[in-house]
């Protein structure tokens, strides 16, 4: 069936339903059909990581997944990180440690780091760097990002 399909999914706790061609990429569905433009498109071949979102709790690239594949999934994007009107501790750490400049890789960095810190709540710096190598940044030299993730780790570990 190349005809439009119905996609029902939950994004940041809110249910959505849309219709699209089966070939529509998940990232395009989020940005165009749901107007959630916080997730960015950087390469469309799964390398730069700017489009990374949480799908059923784990980080994955939304540019190399079809929207129809996310039917029934629970997705979290950068727009869903704030809690009670305040920055999530990871977001706050990025601000504190200058973990962003242009902000374009930031959604991918945040979602990747969030997943990583759940898997590894007490990482070493090389482990942080290895995890963040999933996302390309051209502004920061990664310095502030690595610092931010290191600073957020104990805060998140305490909350867990």
């Amino acid at each position: 069936m190349a005809e439009p399909v119905t996609v029902r999914l939950t994004v940041n706790g809110v249910g959505h339903e849309g219709r699209c061609e089966p070939r529509k990429l998940l990232v395009d569905f989020l940005r165009e059909d749901l107007a959630l433009t916080g997730t960015h498109v950087g390469c469309e071949h799964g390398i730069c990581g700017a489009c990374t979102v949480l799908i059923d709790g784990v980080a994955a690239r939304s540019c190399i997944m079809l929207a129809v594949q996310a039917d029934g999934a629970e997705i979290v994007t950068i727009e869903g990180l704030m809690q009670d009107g305040a920055l999530h501790p990871l977001q706050a750490a990025f601000r504190e440690h200058h973990g962003l400049q242009c902000g374009f890789c930031t959604p991918g960095m945040l979602m990747t780091a969030l997943d990583f810190l759940r898997v590894n709540p007490t990482p070493t710096e090389p482990e942080i760097r290895e995890a963040l190598s999933a996302v390309l940044c051209r502004c920061t030299g990664y310095h502030g990002i690595v610092k931010a993730v290191a600073a957020a780790a104990p805060v998140l570990a305490k909350r867990a």
Binding site: L36, G38, T39, I78, E79, R95, L100, G103, T106, P107
Partner: peptide, 12 residues
Amino acid sequence: EDHRLLTGRGTY
């Protein structure tokens, strides 16, 4: 700039 960019509210 950070608040908008960290919460997905930038305008690119």
